[in-house]
Write a protein that binds this DNA or RNA. Structure first.
Length: 309
RNA sequence: CGCGGAGUAGAGCAGUCUGGUAGCUCGUCGGGCUCAUAACCCGGAGGUCGUGUGGUUCGAAUCCCACCUCCGCAA
């Protein structure tokens, strides 16, 4: 079976590798154009492009595939196309290029969390269960018929990045299973239940701002869900303070929301929340680099009574 | 030339504006105390203050110049 693979970030790499390893003929990989990255704005290829090139697979890059890529896609004569976190909306023309259409690997249990950042929101919302769905792509956003689902428990302290990695592997396995079913005709498409559909937007940096009037568990989930990007943040004396990791305190403290109620080597950096408190583990102050709480305290940059927010 | 911060003891920082004996928190080493601790007390070691064998000065971590490295923001 000839396959065209469309994907961009790390999440998609295991799926691409799985297809190639399993012996499918991946005739081309489509990925987002190289983007400037880092302080020096170096033009950087996407993780999927790097993986494709290492396998010697042809790489195509379009600014807008629906506008620029249809003719070239047709020439590839693929039987089916596979998308995984591709990052561009596909037109009907693109969907109709391959006879068996397009199937998509999505990082949530559809119809929950349709859209751009399903994995992060599973963590941010404190979900106990997450998963991947393989679905038929149609012209809506993650609205096509479901072909296969795989669930997994979310660890109590798991970060979005960690869950991402697990789901990407789970997705790759499920993709192979589903392709087999498509080949032998045993796959059964199931319509999505529109009443239970939810959408999640792309995460913006502003979404990662911590509200210390919320319960400690909510703050904790936000910190987990925003790791490794964009990283939950607040302010300390007007300076940006990023919090990479924290835990929920089991002690009760008196103080205002966001008040630093403890800041010493013994207790760590403890911040009062709406309900309970959190203990900060790794953090970064504007202009500085990431430090653990011991290093931060050694530098004497935070004291009891400071208010975050 | 996108904006900004930083390089001082093993770690994290202050000191630089207003040049004049090198400091803080921690770690480490030795001793003490305790049933006990990431507890406490006493004492010690450890630094060419990023590089220039640069400039100014009686004297530079501090002022001036050049360079290197690291980091945050923005994209």
């Amino acid at each position: 079976m000839k396959i065209v693979f469309l994907g961009t970030p790390d999440f998609a790499v295991p799926s691409l590798n799985a297809l190639i390893t399993a012996g499918y003929e991946v005739v081309a990989v489509v990925t987002q154009p190289d983007r400037p990255v880092g302080r020096k704005a170096v033009l950087t290829p996407s993780p999927v492009k790097v993986a494709a090139l290492s396998h010697g697979v042809k790489v195509l890059q379009f600014e807008k595939i629906s506008r620029d890529g249809v003719e070239e896609l047709k020439k590839l004569n693929a039987d089916i196309m596979v998308t995984c976190a591709f990052g561009q909306i596909l037109s009907k023309e693109v969907i109709d290029v391959a006879p068996k259409g397009i199937i998509n690997v999505h990082g949530s249990l559809l119809p929950k969390y349709r859209g751009a950042s399903p994995v992060q929101y599973a963590v941010i919302n404190g979900d106990k269960i997450a998963g991947v769905t393989i679905m038929q792509t149609d012209t809506g956003i993650d609205t096509g018929d479901i072909l296969a689902v795989e669930k997994t428990d979310v660890g109590e302290k798991e970060t979005a990045g960690e869950l991402f990695e697990r789901l990407s592997k789970l997705g790759a396995e499920l993709l192979l299973k589903t392709l087999k079913k498509i080949e032998d005709g045993s796959v059964v498409p199931v319509k999505q239940d529109e009443k239970n559909a939810t959408y999640v937007k792309m995460i913006k940096k502003e979404d990662a701002k911590i509200d210390f009037s919320r319960p400690a568990a909510v703050v904790f989930n936000l910190v987990r869900g925003m790791h490794p990007w964009p990283i939950a943040f607040t302010y300390l004396r007007g300076k940006l303070l990023k919090i990479f990791s924290c835990e929920i305190s089991h002690e009760e403290y008196d103080g205002a929301f966001g008040e630093v109620v403890r800041a010493d080597m013994k207790n760590g950096i403890v911040v009062k929340c709406g309900v309970g408190a959190i203990i900060i583990n790794e953090l970064l102050l504007e202009g500085g680099s990431k430090q653990n709480q011991r290093e931060f305290l050694a530098g004497r940059k935070i004291f009891e009574g400071d208010i975050l927010g």
